[in-house]
Nucleic acid binder design. Sequence first.
DNA 1: CGATGTGAAATGCTTCACAGCA
DNA 2: TGCTGTGAAGCATTTCACATCG
Lengths: 223, 223
Amino acid sequence: MVRLPVYQRILAELLRSGTDTVPSEQLAVLARVTAAKVRKDLSYLGTLGTRGTGYEAAVVVEEIDRALGLDQEWPMAIVGLGNLGHALANSGGFASHGFKLVALFDVDPKVVGSRVADLPVRHVEELASVSREERLTIGVITTPASSAQGVADLLVRCGVCSILNFAPRVLAVPQDVLLRYVDLSIELQVMSFYQSRRLLRSSRRPHALPALRSISLPGQDIS
Amino acid sequence: MVRLPVYQRILAELLRSGTDTVPSEQLAVLARVTAAKVRKDLSYLGTLGTRGTGYEAAVVVEEIDRALGLDQEWPMAIVGLGNLGHALANSGGFASHGFKLVALFDVDPKVVGSRVADLPVRHVEELASVSREERLTIGVITTPASSAQGVADLLVRCGVCSILNFAPRVLAVPQDVLLRYVDLSIELQVMSFYQSRRLLRSSRRPHALPALRSISLPGQDIS
DNA sequence: CGATGTGAAATGCTTCACAGCA
DNA sequence: TGCTGTGAAGCATTTCACATCG
């Protein structure tokens, strides 16, 4: 289920803030879904809640971890160390348990050989051998669009079965390779779509005093 | 529909490569969906195709543009000019028609006052006034997680009705504000989820010779 | 008594199959 | 003849409502 990671993050933040038990109603508000949806989602993972009380955050987090396969390690590699690749490698966003950045690749001789985020930047030619040694399962593409398909082909040949593509390019991969896009312009266009539909119904003006309920806790940085 | 931007990008690439008419079958292969889905999706936009021939790419692109609201300008601002904010501002990923980056904000005195991507970096205090002048509709949050909610609140108060959040934090906004996450760890977790499910069924080994059909055209860079 | 877990109804999305048009 | 457009069937997800349990 695509919502589990969201619940997971919310629960982790709640735990850090000292809340250890939470009813579906509250979780629903925070995740911006309905309470029924939360209950049904969580019920697929087993009987996690306590009637009359709610869910114990720690228990649910652990159970979601298992369901998401985060109880095992996924070795990852980043291909393409331009600005974005650099930013991601250093972001620590991978450091969350379950994922481990084990290799970096590029072709630019100015970058190959340098160290980024405590890892050497290797030439893509080494991808095959490194993939075998490290048993890479996830490849992150942060190359220019023009190289993205070539890199994807290479990753697939090396047995990498999950690809995260940041390049603004639609990629072709075999059916059994999992491909996901993290794509600025696609997101923007989706926003534009919903927004223009909504504008037809009601013309919005600035919120005078939005009633916001926020979780205010420090988290890890990405920038 | 969330697939329209994908069709759009593919069609644009086909156009650049000189193909101007395409049957649903081919579009389906490139977008990794079924032909029936393509036809139904496009049929919602009107009667665009020619029976016996296929779709004329230029016509469909234009029609999708209209449906997505890309025939109007959406003024955007980026808040938070760390590595990621910088990379995005310079990426040109916004330059695609429909979106216009009009302002940059930060609080760090080392950054405020400098110029990035031909725009001055302003202090967030100015957000309200700039928002009025420029009629901001989209806000991009690339701050550390700890500041993200505060920035979101501010954007909402200033009448920004679409927020794109890159910070690893679940945000609370009013119902009528459109909020989307571009989130590394959520994507990774979703991949992990599908991947671990799949591993149960079949244990994969590297592809010997993947039969790949790729669109090979230059596109814009993001890195 | 309060909140979960869950059948059953409602809704939405996808696939199928084929009529209809170029 | 080839491919689109589309009702109808099939499937999945969401909502509802309430029995059930701590």
